[in-house]
Design a protein around this nucleic acid. Structure first.
Lengths: 114, 114
DNA sequence: CACAAATATACGGATTCCCATATATACGTT
DNA sequence: AACGTATATATGGGAATCCGTATATTTGTG
């Protein structure tokens, strides 16, 4: 993982908020992020695709939904950077977290392997 | 310190290398960074000015030289991000460190206050 | 197989970013 | 004051980035 490329991934409001939300929730699907951040779906999808391509996130499909989470292979230092950032910047996702909590009809999760 | 703005500061090869070198050495002047990174002086100055403007670095003039160091007011989480990155990415500044070590005529430092 | 929901991608346009070059400013020395 | 060194800034051009809209793809359901 190239550090500059990694920081480029974090250098966008939508991507950083998405990452912090995913970090907090474990995994989230596109529609949840779209609702929480109040952004158009293609915008969210585009940024998630970029984060996946650079190895920050990985995804799994479950039925109609695609859930994104931190890539388990993300280097420790990079994961640490994210956790450090999350710990001191809760305000960044405060509004989004509230919207997420009050969102009706969130898709049900099943285990990755049954 | 806005996290997105902070990460934008790190999302450039020249800026990140400069920061990691400064972190390692405590403080460096423009001419040392120019030599270590083998870049044109205006390019280095421009990036340092940007890092200063966003509150990541601060500078002090000593005679003809201007030394840059981490801004003492940089939030802990941001400093931590830098240290975490430095700890696992020594390779990023390896060549530059070698050039710095073999650089002749490095300017002498005096204490900030005499 | 039609249809709706969730997600992904393609396309242009607008903005931002980065650079090299040229020039200006500040300091020290003579 | 004149000159050399170190640093800063201005300018213009090219590349990368981000966005909204339109459209394609995938999946589940009837």
């Amino acid at each position: 993982m190239n550090p500059t490329a990694f920081f480029k991934s974090l250098a966008d409001e939508t991507r950083l908020q998405s990452l912090l939300l995913i970090l907090h929730e474990g995994e989230l699907c596109v529609c949840e992020l779209t609702a929480a951040l109040q952004e158009h779906q293609p915008k969210i999808s585009r940024h998630l695709a970029q984060l996946k391509k650079t190895g920050v996130l990985s995804d799994r499909r479950q039925g109609q939904w695609v859930f994104y989470r931190l890539d388990p292979q993300l280097p420790d230092w990079a994961a640490q950077v994210l956790h450090t950032t999350a710990a001191d910047n809760g305000a960044v996702i405060e509004d989004a977290m509230n919207r997420l909590r009050h969102m009706g009809e969130r898709p049900e999760r099943t285990r990755a392997c049954c």
